[in-house]
Amino acid sequence: MFMPIRLALALTFILTTPWAVLAEVQDESALDIQVREIAKTLRCTVCQTENIWESGAPLAQQMRGVVRDRLKMGHSPEDIKEYFLSRYGDYIMMQPPAHGVNWLLWAGPFILLLGGGLLLYKEVIGWVRRTPTPSTTPPTPLDEQARQRLERELES
């Protein structure tokens, strides 16, 4: 007796479920992931070292909107990054493109580390060389007077 009711309920569910909406939600989350991935690579130009995904600034919010709109229009992530680069220059990229003077940003820390390390090494070596080494000859034995004084002090 309950079987037809269950069947009817199942059919009602299948027929009335907005599959298109569910599919759209699925698409939407895929879009969200793409927006997030691109937004994380773009700098919020009015914040301090924040990308537009993490920033709550109105400009960052609008930039996320532009990323979303362009993805919806079928632009590739490279096209979108290129668009922002053409508007704001290299500063917009969280990782500045490695060309021209930007190489300094990439190589600078390593140059500082290697150069600083080399200077430190030279300084340590020089310091070690200047420090007198302790004598390896055995100490002269105590004379009788000193030995007796030491014994007295140890006993007291």
Binding site: L59, Q62, V66, R87, Y88
Partner: peptide, 13 residues
């Protein structure tokens, strides 16, 4: 309306 004009012109503020 949506900040698009400002972004098109690379506006910071």
């Amino acid at each position: 309306l949506h900040g698009q004009l400002a972004i098109d012109y690379g506006v910071y503020g």
